[in-house]
Nucleic acid binder design. Structure first.
Lengths: 137, 137
DNA sequence: TTGTAAATAATAATCATTTCGATTTAGAAA
DNA sequence: TTTCTAAATCGAAATGATTATTATTTACAA
């Protein structure tokens, strides 16, 4: 997902294009990994002094619903990153810097036939630890 | 894990045995699935009127560290359950009632050799949805 | 039985997140 | 271009889970 596509998705769903919306996406395009609402808010403060939490959280949730962003819980705080545009996969997530590495194994194929009568709505497979850079730092 | 073993673990690590500690474990022994701090607090209120949040949270964390309980994040709230005593496995978790079903597939074996130079500290594989009972309810 | 470190109570504080009425703005329609 | 209106944002306070603090109580070793 990139800024162009994302704004297109918004437009098609009747949402307006604002400077704040674009800049939030710019932040995540550059971010390379999972980021918190607080980090985004700080970034936005540079350009939009006094930007409200309402705006930050409202748009984060909007993007999450629209599948423009994906989110996970890290240390009791929600983290967001640009949604991977490619095929379904999972991530190693560095618990220090939030950067991710794609993991192309999904255990769900094997699992599904073990869960007859269960309604599967979602699944999460994440690996946590330190990326090579953060081990030396 | 059961009450007996758990109190033994505590004792060996120099923690004291109190009525509250035992009753917290009793709650989770009966619980059959993931429960929140709030649910535990309400249960404890019956016997210990005015029990403090401090006591509830302190012991939940203690049990989590001691691997007497295991925890996960559900709907932005931490949930706890008695640690499975058996071999390593994962869970289907009902997002309505918190009950779990054991899943004996772990993708980590295949994954590890794809993450050379990464320090793996933890992983999570969870499946969410509705259990058979909650689909009709 | 006593001494003491651990455990608990009774708040208050913190932190992320949510909410809401008032105001501003993007973009469609005139 | 101008006007209109729903959507977006602001400003600020509320909420809800969790953590911290100080005084008091208690388990249990000596």
């Amino acid at each position: 997902m990139n800024l162009q596509n994302a704004m297109e998705v918004l437009r098609k769903n009747g949402y307006k294009s604002t400077g704040r919306r674009k800049d939030i996406l710019t932040f995540f395009e550059k971010a390379d990994g999972y980021r918190t609402a607080k980090e985004l808010h700080q970034f936005m403060e540079d350009k939009y002094e006094g930007i409200s939490f309402d705006t930050v959280y409202r748009n984060l949730h909007l993007y999450d619903e629209m599948k423009i962003l994906e989110s996970t819980e890290l240390n009791g705080e929600k983290h967001f990153r640009m949604k991977c545009a490619t095929h379904h996969h999972h991530h190693f997530i560095c618990s220090r810097c939030g950067k991710t590495k794609e993991i192309n194994i999904c255990p769900m194929d094997e699992v599904e036939n073990k869960l007859e009568n269960y309604m599967i709505e979602d699944h999460k497979f994440e690996i946590y630890g330190l990326c090579p850079e953060c081990q030396v730092a």
